[in-house]
Design a protein around this nucleic acid. Structure first.
Lengths: 149, 149
DNA sequence: GCATTCCTGAGCATTACTGTCAACTATTAA
DNA sequence: TTAATAGTTGACAGTAATGCTCAGGAATGC
């Protein structure tokens, strides 16, 4: 029951993009350095994020990526959808809860409800939330570092 | 974000065990037929369920497995734990929410909370619940079949 | 003792994941 | 126009996990 690193990377990259984004686009290289993710792999992920209309690309010198919408309007479940990771916990079921099993699954209900809870939670969390959270954590760590010095 | 079939099989097998269990033990063969799961594979799963103290085994002719506790006291998360599937969505985090990442994960919070929600939900669902649910579904299907005849 | 059932460990094919590589296209500064 | 920057695409390969089989062994009831 693990999220693929692809999905994790995508969320981290989006948060980082929002952290670094001021007025100008943020290059993939910058995100790669900060998050320690392979540059070529990030290219793949951002292609998908662009197709999912979560980011826009700016080409040419000084180019990079920018969020396509305000960070508060981008939810974690949308990011995961964009990189084509499913949030449905079993493979015999589609997104509407229909089950492909020939005879009735005796366990249908749990998985359906579980999927709904997972999506429900992830659709309630925005990039903005996570960015604020990250800022607070970075701040706290600096404070503690100062104390020990 | 898929549950392994191992975990799904284990839950289905437990529900089936409760469905078929009257006074005498239920053999793996019986469960295999009903749930259409390979017999030898089920043997592996039941070995783990036994180690997890969710079932007890009775050897010899007429033997099989019985639930180690009342069905209402066996929760789905315990079954999944027994077959060694994790409910933590990311690999850098342990069950207490401690993160192994060298620099701080900017996305730590979501995954931790998501994991807690998943476990919270699955620990609220018992084998008894699922069995009742399965009985109701079987009943409903029979009714509909009668109508179309 | 013999059939039935559980028990155990080794092994193996397939798939999915993670990432690299190489070539290409688009945009812009100079 | 040309060089530089940056994104775009598709093929592919190594690794790890998954899902499952097989071959035997051990306990038990009749």
């Amino acid at each position: 029951m693990r999220l693929s690193t692809k999905a994790q990377y995508a969320v981290r990259a989006m948060v980082r993009l929002n952290l670094e984004q001021k007025d100008s686009p943020v290059s993939i290289r910058e995100i790669s350095t900060h998050e320690n993710i392979s540059l070529t792999y990030l290219e793949q992920l951002f292609a998908k994020l662009r197709r999912g209309k979560l980011v826009r690309s700016v080409r040419g010198p000084g180019g990079g990526y920018i969020l396509a919408r305000p960070a508060a309007d981008i939810k974690v479940d949308q990011i995961i959808d964009s990189v084509e990771e499913t949030l449905i916990p079993v493979s015999c079921m589609d997104e509407f809860g229909n089950c492909a099993c020939s005879d009735q699954c005796v366990t249908h209900t749990v998985w359906q409800e579980l999927g709904e809870r997972i999506r429900g939670f992830l659709s309630s969390v925005s990039i903005e939330d996570l960015t604020n959270d990250a800022r607070a954590r970075i701040h706290r760590q600096r404070e503690e570092q100062r104390k020990t010095e």
